[in-house]
Amino acid sequence: MSVTTASPSMTSNTAPQVIHPLWVRVTHWINAVAMVVMIMSGWQIYNASPLFPFVFPREITLGGWLAGALLWHFAAMWLLVINGIVYVTLGVLTGRFRRKFLPISPHAVVADVRAALTFRLSHDDLSIYNAVQKLLYLGVILAGFVVVLSGLAIWKPVQLQMLTAIFGGYDAARYVHFFAMAGIVGFLIIHVVLALLVPKTLRSMITGR
């Protein structure tokens, strides 16, 4: 196993290194469920008044009609936000974000993208993120903030009108919400494809090792 052989100091009876502590794995999978519900119900809500000349096929939406989709969306938002707060708080307090995501430099990102595209990017040590991973993970956390804040701006354009104004008003906030969703979906596709290409990453997000 590459993880154990990568650490010569480890003896055979030592448990392999924990890559993802329990709180990361639990919040990751809760987030996965919440995200999928939010995205699929959000697509149904979008279809009631599309911003662009297309709608999402109903096979990939959740809720069946607008009222059903809104019920799902405004139920799952609690799961998404509470879980997100726990994740970000622990990420900052435990120093995991700093250790895993920083430092990150444009030079390293370019080098790692090049290595990835030529299939020379190493995955030997799953506990260390390459620059592309750092960028994507930081980016999706940022998109998460934007999607939640723009969602609040659309939901409460009177009570939270300062927030709505920051996004350029109610109508503009709808576009911000849409593009933040699109960014997250883009991340999700890359994330899932790469996890399937390197299955041990999927295993480590379940067992921690």
Partner: peptide, 21 residues
């Protein structure tokens, strides 16, 4: 909101999606 849509089929779609998801 969906004038052309037989409402009863909503639940079937709903249940299978929920199940799948």
């Amino acid at each position: 909101l969906r004038p052309d849509f037989a409402r009863r089929s909503f639940l079937r779609g709903m249940a299978s999606l929920g199940t799948l998801t």
